[in-house]
Nucleic acid binder design. Structure first.
Length: 570
RNA sequence: GGACCUGUGGUGCAGCUCGGAGUGCACGCCGCCCUGUCAAGGCGGAGGUCGCGGGUUCAAAUCCCGUCAGGUCCGCCA
């Protein structure tokens, strides 16, 4: 039906008579003798010259047959890839007529996302969405190739799975053949892939859809896509190597530049220097520790175990109301307050300045090689909250837009095994209960569990958590000690994960794995703030699909088949 | 569950503080004119329950309350 894509027509084809197909992007009529049609397909735009008027309107689907001709002198359009040529002596066949679209597709104005999502099929015709989804396809293809080349076998795992009440809230699917019983959609193929290891597939991967019934965010949809992988007889470093290879290949394919090797830092270091477990390394403003300088302070506001400080270059120009805002922000984050010191030629400018001793003043003045015109923020609190509050302010004040700056990948390793305590007084797993503790910390499980490091690791890119993984427990004795630390009884473990524990009795190889979010990776490659921009049919923040109207009520008959009763509201 | 922002012809905005006739801008749409445009140009035209409901008022797009939808965030996301 067509010979070429619009944008592939070039001056080497001059004289050829050929056909292209696409949508009418624009019609420019010059009376009854001459008209120009901009024809658009996925590749771009090509101008067709029509003698006489033409009965087409924007978004009509047409096939245009014409002769490739150099544009007359002075009419070349260098803003168009095909701007040196045009199709002349054209025959225009209308393949489909079209109503005027509800919004303009030419990127001249930003369209409300509500409208874009209601008419997503039109939105997808736009250049940005075409580029984003094609970028995503290229990333997927590159990841598959990288995994294949590293000897991984792609295996599909079920979408209808058994409930394992732990972690994220699951989407529930009622069973028709077993009324009153339910499948769940997997929040990740975690257990399935560990069972593949028991099954002898020693290198598995999958581009897997994961589903979590949790509230949505700019970087979170109900359903998202991960490159999921697991390997047997490997160390943590092997896994980091597999993933690095795949991600760097994808980065090269997407951006044309291969990043250098991915550095790593421990979780403790990330918290200490960046106040978060997902540090954005595109900019400085590294947290400093002033605890020892304030150890014997007279200043009440600094009477805490930890004093953390951060220098904001140029921050001395912050107005008082801006500083009040930031202080409120810090308090919302749980800080008792936020101290600030502007660096001026005359010394420190701050409500607290006159209470500081000479050595304390010197310590503040010396933070991070501060210069006149900077501001130093300090938070005094317990260690972790002090770090986290400043870490949040650091991102709020310093983080460049997603599309800006280089791509800084970093591995964050040695996450703690447990974090905090639940309502019933049990420890909570930081990653998941099958994570292998750090070998040096095994003895602490019973004595000082919160200090136990795990062999869990995250991959972070520009402050976004791309994914996480761990070395898994394959020994029953360690697994049972972890369950017991988590307050999971043998009976509970049996009912929740029995099939996994049962499988492990028959010879489980040591194994480790990882999974990272392709939506987020592609969003950063595309330079967009929101993963909806790299998903064909995303949902709104309230989980609605504005195009289909989902979620919707279902009919009485379907409900009866499933033996589901909807109680009246109220 | 909570905080904040947004909602005005098909689209994007302004108008809202400080109430006074649906007022304005740009794009699109329709008609006419135009033989080299490409954000084409010129002339004319159509198109509105100001998200929805209630309240205050002589009078509400504008003020108040509620509600719905979209967004950003907190909680949540082992």
């Amino acid at each position: 039906m067509r010979d070429y894509l619009c944008a592939s027509v070039n001056s080497a084809m001059v004289g050829n008579r050929l056909s292209v197909c696409g949508w009418v992007a624009k019609r420019r009529e010059h009376g009854e003798h001459l008209a120009f049609l901009d024809l658009r397909d996925r590749s771009g735009v090509l101008q067709a010259v029509v003698e006489g008027s033409v009965e087409v309107r924007p978004e009509f689907v047409v096939r245009v047959t014409g002769t490739v001709t150099p544009r007359p002198e002075g009419t070349v359009n260098d803003r168009l890839a095909t701007g040196e040529v045009e199709l002349t002596d054209c025959r225009v066949e209308v393949l489909a007529i079209a109503e005027s679209p509800p919004f303009q597709l030419d990127d001249r104005v930003d369209i409300d996302e509500q409208v874009r999502l209601r008419y997503r099929y039109l939105d997808l015709r736009r250049e940005n969405m075409q580029a984003n989804l094609r970028l995503r396809a290229k990333v997927n293809a590159t990841l598959r190739a990288a995994m294949d080349e590293q000897g991984f076998c792609e295996v599909e795992t079920p979408l209808l799975w058994a409930p394992t009440p732990e972690g994220a809230r699951e989407f529930v699917v009622p069973s028709r053949l077993h009324p009153g019983e339910f499948y769940v959609l997997p929040q990740s193929p975690q257990i399935a892939k560990q069972l593949l290891m028991v099954g002898g597939f020693d290198r598995y991967y999958q581009i897997a859809r994961c589903l979590r019934d949790e509230d949505l965010r700019a970087d979170r949809q109900f359903e998202f896509t991960q490159l999921d992988l697991e390997a047997s007889f490997v160390t943590q470093d092997d896994v980091l190597g597999f993933v690095s290879r795949a991600v760097l290949d994808a980065a090269q394919a997407a951006t044309g530049v291969r990043p250098g090797p991915v550095p790593s830092m421990t979780w403790a270091e990330a918290l200490d220097r960046y106040g978060t477990d997902k540090p954005d390394l595109r900019f400085g403003m590294v947290l400093q520790d002033l605890s020892s300088a304030f150890a014997a302070t007279e200043v009440k506001a600094f009477g805490a175990s930890t004093v953390k400080a951060m220098r904001v270059p140029g921050g001395a120009s912050f107005t008082r109301s801006r500083l009040d805002q930031l202080t409120d922000h810090a308090k919302e984050l749980g800080a008792k307050g936020l101290a600030w010191f502007k660096i001026t030629p005359d010394g420190l400018d701050s409500p607290l300045a006159r209470f500081l001793s000479a050595s304390e003043t010197a310590a503040v003045r010396g933070v991070d090689e501060a210069e006149v015109g900077d501001i130093i923020f300090c938070v005094a609190d317990e260690y972790a909250p002090a770090c986290k509050v400043l870490g949040t302010l650091r991102v709020a004040l310093g983080s460049p837009p997603v599309g800006e700056g280089p791509h800084h990948y970093v591995w964050v390793t040695e996450f703690p095994m447990f974090e905090g305590i639940d309502e019933e007084g049990h420890l909570m797993a930081a990653h998941h209960p099958f994570t292998m503790p750090h070998p040096e910390d095994l003895e602490l499980i019973e004595t000082d569990p919160l200090r136990v490091r795990s062999q869990a690791y995250d991959l972070v890119l520009n402050g976004w958590e791309l994914g996480s993984g761990s070395v898994r427990i394959h020994r029953a004795d360690i697994q049972s000690r972890i369950f017991s630390a988590l307050g999971i009884t043998d009976e509970e473990a049996e009912s929740r994960f029995g099939f996994l524990l049962g499988a492990f009795k028959y010879g489980a190889p040591p194994h480790a794995g990882f999974a990272f979010g392709i939506d987020r990776l592609v969003a950063i490659f595309a330079g967009v703030e929101n993963i909806r921009e790299v998903i064909a049919y995303p949902k709104t923040q309230s989980g609605a699909d504005l195009m289909t109207g989902a979620p919707k009520a279902i009919g009485e008959r379907q409900l009866r088949e499933l033996r589901i009763k909807i109680p009246p509201k109220g």
